[in-house]
Design a protein around this nucleic acid. Structure first.
Lengths: 344, 344
DNA sequence: TTTAGCACTCTCGTGCCGAGAGTGCTAAAA
DNA sequence: TTTTAGCACTCTCGGCACGAGAGTGCTAAA
């Protein structure tokens, strides 16, 4: 794993860079010419032979150039790539866009997905921030004509859930407001367990609504919160590597279908600390579904307030430097947003 | 346009049915054998020649079978197809699913998109119901720590908009509730124009919030409402006709990018009456972007309450009968939902 | 008006060939 | 011992020809 000479590292890095750029298998001679190496193509050939032996490179067939293996990409991302950062003008532009979005969380989410997709030319996913332990803040009951009542539930983290409920018999807005006020006083600042435990005597309507409240809070504690924002799905189709039969389909399904996405996020990101960016190359042996994809994921937010996940899915042949920096940068922006929303 | 003999109609219908099923150009002999026609392949050849002359059929090359032209599909859908309906068990299953979703609008939307995608094996889009002329019903202001205030705005049609606003200086929940109550009294049942016109003296905070209210109502009167639900984008990739370079990409972009979608909906559906289903085959000459797609769209809801749009995008070679009935059926379900939510 | 017969056309799969690219090995040079 | 030049070898890929198969259009008979 570590026994690479400096020259081997250099050649591996060049092969990967060149391949990422051109998409063509890269040969020894090309490498020497393009990057003006001080040693000959024969030497490069020997080294590439060694790297192939070690599993960092592959050759599609006997007489094509070399192509990085998943192992090779991983070594590159982990050891060779170095820490890249987005160019300042790009950062400025992104910040500006977010600035214009005001304080509308929904717009921030959409924008984050859009920026990720655009910058990395890949498909992106962003989940809304939510707290693992949602705390009741406020409830509002609004009469929408007759027996249909709109219930709006606000958590301390700013999350909102809404639901319609049908009553057995009509109730006036007066009565509803009274019920809401009573519940507000009772449950203010409590989490699910405490609400369940609070033994105040309730009338029928209040009991029903309390049940709904508990259910809603439970749901909002779920990993994916309520909303998932996606963008750049069309980029998946641009990538020539996905044009092979079925490749694109699998990739799309992962992003589109909630269960798959949820599984992915649960198993990888939740184990990452908040600042870090997780890179998953070619499924890493565990995920058959993303055999020929790479995923760059990060969590954002603040552990005490609310957290969310965002990430990018693209082909294995992906400009990792740029993608990783973008993901990190956007994650930071969103983290700041979360903190700001809760700041006093 | 009308001068088709009965036999020509029959042959045209059979060609289209067969092609939709198999995806292969259909020849005269196959037609006679499979559908046990009482006349010979030579006769069929003559008729197919005539149909080709008239522009309803095409031949990919001299010696392949015939393939429907866009004109042909249009004739088929308009004149030949007849009114199909979903099988009763299918309907029952769909209704059951919706029943289980309770009264959560968001879940209904997601479910509608999912059902459409699944039944028609194509990509689907559903927009949330909203009223063209949103009317103020209720506002709620909630203090979320310090100077950040959450504003929840409810319209008479049950639509909800939420927004964060930052105040210059901290305010207590008491004060916020008072402001909200005052605004509620003032604006109850008014639309944008009336709110703007109402000349009551307001203090600074109230003025700011009124501005936001107006802006929000304006936005919610926008065609696409706030949320667009999509599903089945992966089906776009399954279709062999989309595997040609770029075909799938264009299709995906139409669904994914708001402006394109908005344009499509504005120009087609808004001119349709509420019960009808609009079928757009191959762009109909106007839409270059969906040259090789067909779109089946419908509006749902109730003109006085709220309306939304839903539809399916797939390849031109699409099982129109099934798709159209599905779209119609789901549209009806959602219409009922809208009415129910407003029922007294 | 319909049908049988037949020549004609076009696609598609297969196999073959030569050009091109890149390798691996060997033997000489540093 | 390491690097390099040289060279034979391997493999892909684009063209091309060829034959099978499918379907048509036309003509002449029923």
């Amino acid at each position: 794993m570590l026994n690479l000479t400096e020259r081997q590292k250099q050649i591996l890095a060049l092969v990967i860079r060149d391949y990422i750029e051109t998409g063509q298998p890269v040969g020894s001679q090309r490498l020497v010419e393009v990057y003006e190496l001080t040693y000959s193509s024969a030497t490069v050939r020997n080294e590439m032979g060694a790297l192939t032996e070690m599993g960092y490179l592959r050759q599609p067939h006997t007489s094509a150039g070399r192509v990085p293996s998943e192992e090779g990409y991983r070594y590159f991302v982990g050891q060779l790539m170095g820490n890249t950062d987005l160019p300042v003008p790009t950062k400025r532009m992104i910040v500006h866009q977010f600035y214009q979005a005001g304080t509308d969380i929904e717009r921030w989410m959409r924008l984050a997905a859009s920026v990720l997709a655009h910058q990395s030319q890949a498909a992106s996913v962003v989940t809304a921030p939510h707290s693992d332990t949602s705390v009741f803040k406020h409830i509002e009951l609004i009469n929408t004509r007759g027996r249909q009542v709109l219930m709006v539930l606000v958590m301390t983290n700013g999350e909102i859930r809404q639901q319609m409920l049908a009553l057995a018999e009509p109730v006036t807005q007066e009565q509803l407001s009274q019920v809401a006020q009573r519940l507000n006083n009772l449950y203010q600042g409590l989490n699910v367990e405490n609400i369940q435990a609070s033994g105040s005597p309730l009338e029928a309507l209040e009991q029903d609504i309390t049940k709904l409240i508990i259910e809603d809070i439970r749901q909002s504690s779920h990993i994916l919160g309520s909303e998932v924002y996606r963008d750049g799905l069309n980029h998946v189709l641009d990538d020539p590597e996905f044009s092979e039969e079925g490749g694109a389909r699998r990739a799309l399904r992962i992003i589109e279908e909630r269960p798959l996405l949820e599984d992915l996020i649960t198993r990888t990101v939740l184990s990452t600390e908040l600042g870090g960016v997780q890179v998953l190359i070619g499924g890493e042996g565990t995920y058959e579904e993303l055999r020929d994809c790479s995923v760059v994921l990060a969590r954002y937010g603040h552990p005490d307030l609310a957290t969310g996940t965002l990430g990018v899915l693209g082909p294995i042949r992906m400009p990792y430097g740029r993608t990783i920096s973008t993901v990190r940068f956007v994650a930071n922006l969103l983290s700041n947003l979360v903190v700001d929303l809760h700041a006093e």
